[in-house]
Amino acid sequence: MNSIPLSIISRLLFPLQLTLSIILLFRGHNLPGGGFIGGLLAASAFALVGFANGSARMKTFLLFAPSVWIGTGMLLALLAGLMPVLMGEAFFKGLWHYGIIPTIVAGDVKPGTPMLFDIGVYLLVVGIASHLVLLFESKGGD
């Protein structure tokens, strides 16, 4: 597929989709959103680039191989579960830092292990969804 309008639009939309996905990620603890849906949106941004410009371009946009995204996400999510264990609390107990990080795109963010878990899920979903897209894009083989 080689369509110039789609190619231009995909690259215009890419930063917008990615920003929106990060907003969704950080508002997710108390409002609709979260790591899963944010990750899907980000993956769809990458996938759109892939559909419009080929999977080689999609890989450069991803910066790292999908496996790196997946592995890092899993480790972060596990870390969110294990941090309370190190502090003597129950597995996956939410630990919050008293303070907020003001960000431009996502408003005030409360740092804590549930946030870390959501970030892990986000990375994991981006990795898996883009891996799937790359897999079905490639011709033959697995």
């Binding site: 496996s67 790196v68 592995g71 480790l75 596990l78 294990l82 597995f91």
Partner: peptide, 17 residues
Amino acid sequence: LAFPIVIPFFCAALNIL
């Protein structure tokens, strides 16, 4: 009780990386 689940998933994550 969490560790029989955590250890395999930790290993899986390292395997991917």
